[in-house]
Nucleic acid binder design. Structure first.
Length: 466
DNA sequence: GCGATCAGCT
DNA sequence: CACAGCTGATCGC
């Protein structure tokens, strides 16, 4: 192997190996990262087939792994929580005199200007390599990078802002492939030219640019899909987008019939400390708790917090258990109606007075805001019982014991944080990977730091032993 | 005035 | 913190 002239090495998963201790100076390394030089083929790649070669052909810029993907400005590093969680020191920032070729800085007259060493430097948005599907002209959830060289098909896994960001009426870079429900949401909520929106029926093989593409239910938010690619050469790639792995997925024929060569995995909670319960357990707890409060105080207004889409199951279940309608504001109602789910659509009502069950943006689920909100419905309702459903609510102390959850109470306002997650917990990730036994795994979340990636890779290796 | 984007915030 | 946004300010048009 002649590796003398080679600048970068890859680990088993196509990530650049952190080689600060090698002959290279940090400065060189920095510039190497960002220079759009010709293909530099690392030694590690040369013997490992086309996978990493394809990645390199798709772009050699790794700087996206250093800055937070959704952080477009000049903020510092991210993932501090995981540094803490895994007992890792916060790494030093890359030099701010980065040699990235900055796009012309836009002048902003912000009175709260940030520190000088951070000002005036803007990182260009370059599509991270793990959003490109090697051997194809496809990218996944990559709309905020403008035109991606060589990309002629843009996949959208689900309708959450951090995945569709960049889609607007000015989108003109290529067709947007997504599930039919997601397609409806894009049409309703964004002003994208409808000609670009290409709905792909779930569980159906679609031939696109010679690649067989199948969308599969992802058990995340409504419309969310896993994307399965089968290339001409027979290689199979699975991109999970965001998902919550479950037993049902083990019955997908596509996942049992042929080995997955590369799994692009939603690793949001890929740490053993995340042991939150199944969604059903959490929903049952919410219903139990609601019943208890209503018994004590029948004039309780029940509130469920939610982002734009997601968490519907929580309030639909309350609605069914108590036999009450669901109130939410017209804009959210319009979106929920578009799902076409009878259990949901049939229960929506347009007056807050006629329903004791309201769905509000999570930002309202604070004691002061809810107190204000309750005033509008006085004296019909005299207290609020609110639920914030999110995976981050999970605490190790509480663990799986939902009944140990202590609400925050202020007067007649009670707020429960409940660990209802639409991402896989650690165990579910492990089970899914052990079932799938993919040849290679590329994590797509928490990848901003080599130590995080190493930690995750060590989990993967452990799971795939023998 | 309007849509898009960004900093700051939760 | 992050999840997946939201809010308000400030751009271009």
């Amino acid at each position: 192997m002649e590796s003398e002239t080679l600048a970068l090495d890859l680990d088993d998963n196509g990530f650049p190996i952190d080689s600060l201790s090698s002959e290279e100076e940090p400065v060189d390394r920095d510039s190497e990262k960002v220079e759009e030089r010709g293909l530099v083929i690392p030694s590690a790649v040369q013997n490992t087939g086309s996978f990493a070669l394809d990645f390199y052909a798709g772009g050699t810029d790794w700087s996206c792994l250093i800055s937070k993907e959704k952080c477009s400005g000049n903020k510092g590093l991210v993932q501090k929580n995981l540094f803490q969680a895994w007992g890792i020191e916060k790494p030093s920032l890359i030099p701010s005199r980065s040699s990235i070729s900055f796009s012309p800085p836009r002048k902003r007259h912000c009175s709260k200007r940030i520190a000088e060493d951070r000002s005036g430097t803007e990182r260009p948005r370059i599509c991270p390599f793990y959003k490109k599907i090697p051997g194809t002209s496809f990218a996944v959830d990559a709309f905020r990078y403008g035109l991606i060289q060589g990309c002629s098909g843009y996949f959208l896994t689900h309708f959450h802002y951090d995945h569709y960001g960049g889609l607007s009426k000015r989108w003109s870079h290529g067709p947007i492939y997504c599930s039919p429900l997601t397609a409806r949401l894009v049409k309703m909520c964004l002003s994208v030219n409808p000609l670009f929106i290409c709905p792909l029926e779930l569980d159906t093989e679609h031939l696109i640019d010679g690649v067989k593409v199948t969308m599969l239910e992802a058990n995340h938010c409504p419309g969310a899909a896993l994307v399965h690619f089968r290339l001409k050469d027979g290689r199979c790639y699975l991109h999970t987008g965001d998902f919550r792995a479950c037993k049902m997925m083990q019955s997908y024929a596509l996942l049992t019939s042929q080995r997955i060569n590369v799994l692009y995995l939603d690793t949001t909670y890929c740490n053993p400390k995340y042991r939150f319960p199944p969604k059903e357990d959490v929903v049952n707890f919410v219903v139990r708790t609601t019943r208890k409060y209503l018994e004590k105080q029948p004039k309780t207004l029940v509130v469920v917090g939610s982002y734009s889409i997601g968490k519907e199951h929580v309030y639909v279940t309350i609605s069914q258990a108590l036999g009450v309608q669901i109130y939410t504001d017209p804009s959210r109602r319009r979106i929920l109606q578009s799902f076409g789910w009878p259990q949901l659509c049939g229960q929506l009502c347009s007056s807050g007075q006629t329903s004791p069950l309201h769905v509000l943006p999570l930002s309202v689920l604070r004691p002061e805001s809810l107190k204000e909100y309750l005033k509008k419905y006085s004296p019909q309702f005299t207290a609020v019982l609110a639920f914030r459903p999110t995976g981050w609510t999970y605490s190790e102390a509480t663990g799986n014991h939902l009944d140990l959850i202590k609400p925050t109470s202020k007067g007649n306002i009670t707020i429960y944080g409940v660990p209802y997650s639409e991402h896989s917990n650690y165990e579910e990730l492990r089970e899914f990977v052990k079932f799938l036994r993919p040849e290679r795994i590329i994590p797509t979340v928490n990848v901003g730091n080599a130590a995080n990636r190493d930690k995750m890779q060590s989990y993967f290796q452990e799971w795939l032993k023998t």
